[in-house]
Design a protein around this nucleic acid. Structure first.
Length: 509
RNA sequence: GGCGCGUUGGUCAAUCGGCUAAGACGCCUCCCUUUCACGGAGGAAUGACGGGUUCGACUCCCGUACGUGCUACCA
């Protein structure tokens, strides 16, 4: 079994791609790359009622944005084509039938309504919170190929009665397996119900499909969320009874990503409620017409997003926290993934982005920043933008901050802090600005040191201190109390604009 | 209710029997900066509880509590 490592991400295309989903992709990807293996994308679209237009395409785009491209996928193809379970429909029946023939599965004719009623009845007169289980204790009283006689079964089949195929869980056996993250895990098979394997519409359920496809696609390691742990015994038994035990992948059940406040799994609603994205990219839901904000659109760098997600539940055991994708690949190991769920912390997420912005070259940032200028009707040449980026990138956390922190380099700002100047305004200061700007007009060498020199000279002449004037000047040029050095700003925006802004501001006072 | 899984500061977390329990985010103080940041120096803040095992337990075992997941012809 010197098999090449093969892992898969198997989303169902029902909506936006959630943080937890991206992290699952990421761990798959990192594991595959770390071991020089292959990473495949398989679309689990077996539930036709939940199909959402555009969801698959959206998932592919998210992976692309994150830089986590699969080696095989519905789009790229590969040796195990097709990669969409709906297109593999014909494959599953034979395996379900194989299990029926061997006595490990059976036909069940109970209608959804009958089952529903059964559950309701039990909830009514029974203990609340108790659920009806279709298992070894109840299957004898249900309508299935185990309880009915051959004649009855044949009749039902003859009349084309819809049926499902259910697994016949063994009674009183202990199933154990070793999870790569959690170690040994044990189940009592009597407590697991007879899950549906093949639905009445001929589609497999997740339970049958994962096992069959993981086998057929030669998957060596299967990573999925912790919520799948309770159904693991079903899958284990399937691998066993289908006779594929020797090629069963190694399992790893990933911890959940939890709400930052309170408790429970992180959901899209938490993002809306608490004001942060939960999806990788903007998701437009064709059913509701709503768009949910994504990390990309809110201004995250994909490498920061991925870095942050990697560290949410995994730790390399060293002090370094900022990693490139390549470095993550190098250091990743599934054994170092945490067992416990992690609460998502948006503040920390933003910190990762800030760090990655700081580390990015101005050239790399340029194309990412540009759209935010265009959005505000600004068209500028790259050389100038590059200088601006260098000046302000250390005060930017999210990409839109480049506009908030740098707009005054491109447009005359609205003076929002006029009151700050007004409070201590007098004729002497007014005089200072008037005579200084006059002098500025004849300044031939327009650079920040020269500007600062004339500034200092004029201060003395007017018997003013730097502290009296510096902040007013900043507000006149910037509009507020922020930004890089004032004289550098003056140099950047040019003589004319500088004189103009001061003049206009003085006029307002 | 049943079953599974989990539990180190507010959050992410290191530790694989020697702990005076790292580091990061956030928070607070100070320095740098006559703006805002960046950066630097400090500070407050942690092993759920109870039993074992052991010379020694955050680390191993057992209970309890709490949390969380599953309990669909959904994934």
């Amino acid at each position: 079994m010197s098999n090449k490592v093969r892992v898969r991400f198997a989303p169902s295309p029902t909506g936006g791609l959630h943080l937890g989903g991206v992290r699952t992709v990421l761990y798959n990807y990192l594991f595959a790359r770390h071991h020089g293996g292959e990473f495949v994308l398989r679309v689990e679209d077996t539930d036709q009622t939940r199909f959402v237009e555009g969801a698959e395409d959206y998932i592919v785009k998210c992976l692309e944005w994150c830089g986590l491209n699969p080696d095989e996928s519905p789009q790229k193809g590969g040796p195990f084509v097709p990669y969409r379970q709906s297109e593999r429909k014909h494959l599953y029946y034979q395996y379900a039938q194989q299990l029926v023939d061997a006595g490990h599965a059976y036909y069940a004719f109970d209608t959804p309504e009958e089952l529903e009623r059964k559950r309701n009845d039990l909830a009514k007169d029974g203990n609340p919170g108790t659920n009806f289980q279709y298992d070894s204790s109840t299957r004898g009283s249900m309508r299935n190929s185990l309880s009915l006689n051959n004649q009855e079964i044949l009749e039902l089949l003859d009349k084309n009665t819809p049926y499902v195929i259910r697994i016949k869980m063994e009674h009183g056996k202990t199933i154990t397996f070793t999870d790569m993250i959690r170690g040994e895990i044990t189940f009592d098979t009597s407590l697991v119900d007879d899950k549906v394997l093949l639905k009445a519409d001929g589609m497999p359920t997740y339970h049958l499909a994962v096992v069959v496809d993981d086998y057929l696609m030669k998957i060596t390691h299967a990573f999925r969320g912790e919520e799948w742990l309770p159904s693991a015994p079903v899958h284990l038994m399937l691998w066993d009874k289908l006779g594929w035990k020797d090629s069963m992948p190694q399992w790893a059940h990933l911890p959940l990503i939890l709400k930052p406040d309170g408790h429970g799994k992180l959901s899209k609603r938490d993002g809306d409620r608490l004001g942060f994205p939960v999806f990788a990219m903007d998701w437009y839901d064709p059913k509701t017409g709503d768009t949910t904000k994504g990390f990309k659109e809110i201004g995250f760098l994909p490498e920061a997003f991925v870095n942050m997600l990697a560290m949410l539940g995994w730790n390399p055991g060293m002090e370094q926290e900022i990693f490139s994708l390549e470095e993550l690949v190098q250091h990743f190991s599934i054994e170092r993934v945490h067992k416990g769920g992690a609460k998502f912390d948006y503040e920390k997420a933003k910190w990762y982005n800030q760090q990655h912005i700081h580390q990015s070259s101005d050239e790399k940032l340029l194309p990412l920043v540009k759209p935010y200028l265009t959005e505000h009707g600004v068209n500028t040449d790259d050389a100038y933008l590059l200088k601006v980026i260098a000046l302000i990138k250390e005060r930017c956390t999210l990409l839109p901050d480049f506009w908030d922190q740098g707009h005054f380099f491109f447009k005359t700002p609205e003076i929002k802090e006029l009151d700050t100047i007004k409070g201590k305004w007098d004729d002497n200061k007014k005089n200072f600005f008037n005579t200084w700007t006059e002098g500025l007009k004849s300044l031939t060498d327009w650079n920040h040191t020269a500007i600062e020199h004339t500034f200092n000279d004029h201060l003395q002449q007017h018997n003013l201190k730097k502290g009296d004037i510096l902040l007013p000047l900043r507000i006149m040029l910037v509009g507020g109390k922020y930004g890089p050095g004032v004289f550098v700003i003056a140099e950047m925006i040019g003589k004319e604009e500088t004189v103009k802004r001061i003049g206009q501001a003085v006029g307002l006072l």
